[in-house]
Amino acid sequence: MTRYEIRVSGFGGQGVITLSKMIIMASSIYEGLAATQTEAYSAAARGGKCWAEVVVELDKNIELIDYPKALKPYDFLIVLSEESANDVKVDFIKDEENTGFLIWDPTTIKKLKVGKKINKVLGIPVQKLAVEKFGNIVFGNSILFGIFTILSGIFSEESALETIKKFVPNSTLDKNLEAFELGKQEAMNFLNKIKEENN
């Protein structure tokens, strides 16, 4: 049994819930892993502390996730708003090899207080990039999804691409795929950087 715990938090409307749904779709429908997703509900989903959690069971033999809530420390944490970033503490993130990532967005977060104490932290202005390069903030989702695909490695790139095709309308598919590629590149650069640092 190997649980992979993911949490995404931010403002309502930033795509927090969409991103989590993309993650669970790629891992459960296309990759065939057991997974559960829960999300902030009603008023919370519209305010500054919107969140969504995904638990993926990496063991293919297990069909039912025993505890459907994501547990701290997380394997993967994405914070997109100041309010949710302020809540983050050091012990929220797993400190293990190959896992325990924190992604934050400098577009909406001035300073991540715990940033220096966590090993694998990537600050990337996703929302700024999305607007500048693709013209709309919604493409930030695909960038983040690209980053997640590479860093987590819990599902294959094919599964990720299938998911994007399922989620986005045909008219913006090309742009979304570009955004996904951008995310992938950023993630690979980040991984190389970590490798260098370790060496």
């Binding site: 669970i24 997974a35 559960t36 997703q37 829960t38 459907p68």
Partner: peptide, 9 residues
């Protein structure tokens, strides 16, 4: 409330 809002396959 939890089961009703849980996403699963």
């Amino acid at each position: 409330a939890y089961l009703g809002h849980l996403h699963e396959v």
